[in-house]
């Protein structure tokens, strides 16, 4: 079955992101396909390369990155959500003349149309809202 997963929660503000991460792992372990991960609203913060949790806590953005790169998953952060939360890739940092960029490799910045596109290709869209 084809799944798309929508992550609405920031990494540690609620269980939404961690639950979505574990769900995504389970989807793949069960032999299903992930069409796209869509990080929306506070979920865009999962794309930050600058999170430094205590050593005895899971680094949720890093775990997302590992999963995305290991399986070559299409992962999109909503552009409007990401920009206003200070999650920028190099191109956006240049465009808005910011002095740094912090989007984890493997994530792409794009629009809400990518969610609708993913939903069109998926049997199930599963949302993790805080």
């Amino acid at each position: 079955m084809k799944f798309s997963i929508v992550i609405h929660g920031a990494p540690w503000s609620s269980n939404a992101s961690h639950s979505a991460l574990r769900y995504a792992e389970a989807v793949l372990e069960c032999g299903h396909e992930i069409v796209r991960l869509f990080f929306y609203q506070d979920g865009a913060s999962n794309g930050s390369s600058l999170c430094v949790p205590p050593q005895d806590e899971i680094n949720i953005p890093e775990q997302w990155q590992v999963l995305i790169n290991k399986h070559g998953i299409d992962a999109v952060v909503c552009a409007a959500s990401a920009l206003k939360r200070g999650i920028l890739d190099e191109a956006e940092a240049d465009r808005y003349e910011k002095n740094a960029h912090n989007l984890l490799p493997g994530f792409a910045v794009s629009g809400l149309g990518q969610l609708i596109d993913a939903a069109g290709q998926s049997d199930r869209v599963v949302s993790f809202v805080q």
Binding site: H8, Y40, Q41, L112, G113, L115, D117
Partner: peptide, 16 residues
């Protein structure tokens, strides 16, 4: 932000 998010998704889907 959820209320606005729901409307934005509805509008995006309708736009497509």
């Amino acid at each position: 932000q959820q209320a606005r998010a729901a409307l934005d998704i509805a509008l995006a889907a309708a736009a497509f």
